[in-house]
Design a binder for these strands. Structure first.
Lengths: 158, 158
DNA sequence: GTCGGCCTACTCGGATAGTACGTGTCCGAGTGAAACGGG
DNA sequence: CCCGTTTCACTCGGACACGTACTATCCGAGTAGGCCGAC
């Protein structure tokens, strides 16, 4: 799995804490985690294309969450970066060479079915957890997290 | 996910139907599915390293299942090809730059925990399905599958 | 007829190129804000 | 003092190199089986 997924998921709770009315430049988020600014920008662009965040150009521009953090799931973020297609691609090799029984389609590919079943379990688990859940868990362990984030992103502004 | 996973998983039920006392060369399996022989051989080598199949050299050599198909899970095969490490790698970016609270470790990374939870659901689902289950499902839909496989792999031998 | 040795053909196994995708970087188009000047 | 215009700095967005890992291939080491000859 791409490393950009980790960056994108980490960015979201910060955007949530900073509120929906405030835009954060990719460069500032990158500085927060010491990441390559241009490359993090690329990942945020992918989030924007997927409708997870909304971009704003010009001065005081940046990215903000497109909807309340309760409505954004980990599945949304992962799908935005990795793509919607399933990881296991069935190329129907059972219909090739000596294994071909002649009839196309017919019974579904048992292996494809099994792999998809596992992948659906993964997707279901990711879809059951929202950015708000992540933010809550973090604040539960360190209650000053949101305040620290707000201060850090506010300091360099003044 | 690598395409080799599909090839490896498809190969296993065939090895199961052909019995444990009979070895099948990689080249013959490749011909069965019209795959690059040398490359399929590479995947089978990975299965051998993981202890899923046992290789045999020399004439009448090849690969056979290392244990009964009921004891081989999809997880075993996928892990043999893709590796044991989890897909989402947490690089602890939360402890870098302005996000660093000073204390290493401390509370577990909430994002890592959530991603791992989803991945465990995936692994559990894969581990719950054996090669024997796959073979049974296939035979349920087309009862002559095992017989056809045995005949095809036997024909070129005589 | 049987046994031992040799030879051959066949198999895996790892080392070696080619290619697609993820990683990282750069510069330009567009925009919003702020500064400036005139009314 | 207020408003319109201009300028400017800042942001995203897509186009451009680089590295790694998957894909594909080839050739050599090793082995099991079969053949041949001697006993």
């Amino acid at each position: 799995m791409s490393e950009g997924v980790e960056w994108a998921v980490h960015s979201c709770p910060n955007l949530a804490w900073l509120g929906e009315e405030r835009a954060v430049p990719a460069a500032k988020l990158a500085a927060f985690y010491e990441l390559p600014p241009a490359y993090l920008n690329k990942q945020l662009q992918a989030l924007a294309r997927a409708g997870v965040v909304t971009p704003t150009s010009g001065s005081r521009g940046g990215f903000r969450l497109a909807r309340p953090p309760e409505k954004i799931t980990l599945m949304d973020v992962v799908a935005a970066i990795e793509g919607e297609e399933e990881a296991f691609r069935c190329t129907e090799i059972r219909h090739r060479g000596g294994s071909d029984s002649g009839e196309r389609g017919g019974p579904p590919c048992a292996i494809h079915t099994s792999m998809r079943k596992a992948e659906l379990a993964w997707r279901r688990e990711l879809a059951s957890q929202s950015i708000a859940d992540i933010a809550s868990t973090v604040e539960e362990h360190s209650p000053d997290a949101s305040e620290r984030v707000r201060r850090w992103f506010g300091d360099t502004r003044a």
